[in-house]
């Protein structure tokens, strides 16, 4: 097991470097530069070069990249061009908000998605099934920002049950978590339903019933664990999805998380900040995948025993 984890971590490094390089090249290929966008309307012609030189933007790309990588390996991710702060510190500050949101959203997704999927499968082709499935289809197909504004309008603004924006207590996270979790809930519900229906066709379900087990025990005890295996894999993919969705959700609900940092950094060509946050997000996704694989191995004895 430990060897496996070490191997995965070693493989992650080239991935991170490649992501970094691609981002570096992309940012140098697309038009726009951090100095002019930093000065915006109050551009001072005589200062542009001064700043370019100071920020090292006049060096060849590979030199810039090499310098960045060397510093990064030492744990120094540089200073944000625009906000002039230590990138690591900014990420450290922003990440808890995002992870909190993502965890709440995942909770919502699992608490709603799994039972909804089970009920839909058990009550296949009934009204309950159709209601759940259209609800989850809404979740999957509604853009996060739209669903976000909608819920904000209804629950926070119209009904006044919850705050419009903020992040000061779990109450503030209810709406954003539902908005962000809804999408995953939809995916999980649909996947749980279809997997469960598939698993229910298996011979061992017949065996379980023939043993005299009740239907609930058959579904929850025998079918669910098998049906959840692919859902667990999907969870890893959802880490990326949740972080992506968090960008919009954070903007709408005024949560100072990683998503907002990343979007702002893109808009201002803030290379160090963007690099830092993208690398961080990539690392999270890699870890997410690894955790999902380990979890899968833990759940599925066919993989566990090598």
């Amino acid at each position: 097991m430990a060897r496996y984890i070490i191997k995965r971590i070693l493989v992650a490094f080239p991935v991170l470097i490649a992501v970094s390089l691609i981002l570096f090249v992309l940012l140098n290929v697309v038009p726009g530069d951090p100095v002019t966008v930093m000065m915006r309307e109050h551009i001072k012609p005589e200062l542009i070069e001064v700043f370019r030189e100071r920020m090292g933007l006049n060096d060849p790309i590979l030199v810039q990249f090499g310098r960045y990588m060397v510093n990064a390996l030492r744990g120094d991710f540089g200073m944000s061009y625009k906000l002039q702060r230590d990138v690591s510190a900014m990420i450290r500050e922003a990440f808890p908000h995002t992870i909190k949101l993502a965890i709440y959203a995942a909770l919502v997704a699992w608490i709603i998605g799994i039972p909804a999927g089970i009920l839909s499968a058990v009550k296949q082709n009934t009204l309950v099934d159709r209601a759940f499935m259209s609800f989850s289809l809404m979740g999957v197909s509604l853009p996060v920002f739209w669903a976000g504004l909608l819920m904000q309008y209804l629950f926070a603004f119209k009904l006044g049950w919850l705050p419009v924006t903020g992040y000061y207590s779990p109450r503030y996270y209810i709406l954003p978590a539902i908005v962000l979790g809804w999408q995953s809930a939809g995916t999980i519900a649909r996947l749980t339903r279809s997997n469960l229906l598939e698993v229910m066709k298996n011979d061992y379900i017949r065996t379980a019933r023939a043993k005299g087990l009740g239907e609930t025990v058959v579904v929850v005890g025998h079918a669910l664990k098998n049906a959840m295996l692919p859902v667990v894999t999907m969870m890893a993919m959802q880490v990326a999805g949740l972080l992506g969705g968090a960008v919009m959700t954070e903007s709408i609900f005024g949560i100072p998380g990683l998503g907002r940092i990343t979007v702002d950094a893109m808009g201002t060509r803030d290379m160090p900040l963007l690099q830092g946050s993208v690398l961080f997000i990539t690392a999270i996704i890699i870890i997410g995948n690894m955790v999902a694989d380990l979890l899968y191995a833990f759940l599925d004895p066919r993989i566990r025993v090598e």
Binding site: P31, G32, D33, T36, R40, I48
Partner: peptide
């Protein structure tokens, strides 16, 4: 239509 950074850079 250009994104902000492109617009400012091209203008400069």
């Amino acid at each position: 239509s250009m994104d902000s950074a492109t617009w400012f850079a091209t203008r400069a």
